[in-house]
């Protein structure tokens, strides 16, 4: 006969402490962020990929020519996050957005602190808000904001 007892519970964190080597292209991108600059990579035909890719997604050719782009651009797509989770970029409601920076041809995924969903629109201009002490990570950009 089973004796009914309350089950014990415990917090259990499963974590993989990955580190990855960046290589020259992504290394330049993250080194640039530390200087509050965003870099893309330029293909032979002039198309600029931001974030940079090491290889052309169409031909597989290596791409190496790094170029600085603006830290402001246009929202091309977005989704509103009503209830942010602890690991997300902002503690208050925000938008995840694909942002095509000026001088770039591909969009970058980041957070937009617009205050409210009503303030978000496709085509709106946004500008990066940098943290005070950038360390060489995508989180050096706290988020983008309208402007």
């Amino acid at each position: 006969m089973p004796d009914v007892t309350h089950s014990l519970t415990a917090a259990h964190q499963l974590a993989y402490t990955y580190k990855r080597s960046l290589g020259p292209v992504l290394g330049r991108f993250f080194t640039g962020l530390r200087d509050k600059q965003i870099h893309g990579v330029r293909r032979a035909d002039g198309k600029v990929f931001v974030p940079p890719r090491e290889y052309d997604p169409e031909t597989g050719d290596a791409m190496e020519e790094m170029v600085a782009v603006a830290d402001a651009g246009v929202v091309v797509s977005w989704a509103w996050v009503k209830e942010p989770r602890p690991s997300q970029p902002l503690a208050k409601p925000f938008a995840y957005a694909l942002i095509r920076l000026d001088d770039a041809d591909t969009p970058l995924l980041h957070a937009v602190d617009a205050g409210s969903e009503a303030a978000m629109s496709t085509g709106m201009r946004v500008k990066a808000r940098w943290i005070d002490e950038p360390a060489g990570a995508i989180t050096d950009i706290a988020c983008f904001e309208p402007g």
Binding site: P2, D3, L8, L14, Y16, T17, Y18, L22, T31, S87
Partner: peptide
């Protein structure tokens, strides 16, 4: 230059032991 990026993957669970393991523990 920045050469390495830390990219931890963290999953937070609440583990429930169940009756038998609870008695054992």
């Amino acid at each position: 230059p920045v050469e390495v990026l830390r990219t931890p993957v963290v999953l937070d669970y609440t583990y429930s032991a169940g009756q038998s393991s609870s008695r054992h523990l």
